[in-house]
Amino acid sequence: MNPTIKLSLVILIAFEISFTQVWTVNLALLIVSLLLMIYAHVSLKRLLWLTAVPLFFASALVWSLKLQGSTTPHFLGVIFTRIFVYVYLGGWFSQTTQPLALARSLEQNAKLPAKFAYGFLAAFNLMPKIQAEVATIKAAALMRGQVLHIWSPQLYFKVILAAMNWSDQLAAAMTSHGFVEGAPRTYATTIPLRHRDWWLLGLSLLLVQLGLFCGLP
């Protein structure tokens, strides 16, 4: 499925079920997303993690609503299934979409300016370095005799300086590799946007609308 279409579908559905209260549709959606993940060979470990986490938080939220609020069991069921739909839909999207394919699709199909598509991508590809940097900053401070907490301005100060430094370097490197803002580019690979993608989007949304508004509980 075309990445841009897939992203739109996920956001539209997540948005819509935030406002509606039909637990059967939620249930159907979560089953479909789960099946889609199994079909895409998402690892069992990942699936368990994607199930255990919302299980804990959804239960805790439902329990809290029951104790501290006035509500119906129907509504609790809606909230409980809603959280699962969020996580499974998000899981399906993030586990089956390559950031590069998404960036290319946003550039080619959604006409997002290339500076955004590749700017995002360049930063995302730095993710491992960014993760290691936070640990490095904390350890380096410890060696100077200071403990950095989540509420220490210095932690963020260091992080922001690193971010500024790297963004300067990356932008200079992209320019040096011939990237010019707003200039036309060719595409090494074209991301197809087929009629099938539009049909899939339309039909899926139609099905959800039918479910939501035909009087299901």
Binding site: Y118, N125, L126, Q169
Partner: peptide, 17 residues
């Protein structure tokens, strides 16, 4: 910090694009 893409091949393609 001088690459935009994920793999060697993609980076070369990016520059040629």
């Amino acid at each position: 910090t001088q690459f935009t893409m994920d793999t060697v091949l993609d980076e070369l393609r990016f520059a040629l694009e």
